[in-house]
Design a protein around this nucleic acid. Sequence first.
DNA 1: CACGGATCCTGATGGC
DNA 2: TGCCATCAGGATCCGT
Length: 271
Amino acid sequence: MPELPEVEVTRLSFAHAIADSVVVAAHLGKPLRWPLGVSTSSLKGQTIFGVRRRGKYLLIDFSEGLLLVHLGMSGSLTFKLNPSPPGQHDHFDLVTNRGTLRLNDPRRFGAVVFAQDEDDPVAQKLLGHLGAEPLAQDFDFARFSDAMACCNAPVKSVLLAGKVVVGVGNIYASEVLFAAGIRPTVKASGLSRPRLLRLQQAIRAVLAFAVQKGGSTLRDFSDALGQAGHFQQDAMVYGREGQPCKKCDAKIKLLRQGQRSTFFCPQCQKY
DNA sequence: CACGGATCCTGATGGC
DNA sequence: TGCCATCAGGATCCGT
């Protein structure tokens, strides 16, 4: 469910409400991808300063330490004053005096991990190798093109890997490459300067637009307060195999790259 | 070390 | 209706 826009929309939906709250309790359900790393009782009494995002990770800052939250493939967060008792897919509750932050994650590819700070080896293992933030200032063209020049893998795979730039998941990879007019199978290292420029602009534009739209609704994404997103209506290629391209009418094609689906227009994305 | 594939887990969907 | 195979928005780990 969550790529960068969904994670950011989720963050924006509860960050203000949870800021300055105090942790009353924390509860764990079934095991997630990685263990929490501390006892839930050690979180009690801590003040929550705010919520940041790095790639697809949410960073919840405490008076001492921080929580790294990842939604995996199927995770979602809710923030409610009076939540119902945890259901079978609710695997983490952070109860505060201002409301309860709850992680629901059927597939349990998500994670909640405690770290002392961002230099903590636990945090570095997850965050240390991440690429540039596409919506931040430090996403400059020189570094982007240098990083892309090193990769001989298909540009779609390079975008997904997150080592050059973070946050572009499987849906937005297809959308971004369509917006840039680049074929997903082209080697990243083979892209000309003008194409790299268009690609970088497309990454920024598509992700920013999706955030503005409230995230994807491919299944039924909604933010932590239950507000639904509207990006799906605007998907140009993703999930549209066999349907006419919205720009040129050619049939949208589907291909497999590393066990993931890629959608593209053979006419608008020739190289 | 850079790449492709297998892998964790559950639910939805489609064919028979 | 049931059973089985396939696929799903992520990212790490492992073999080549």
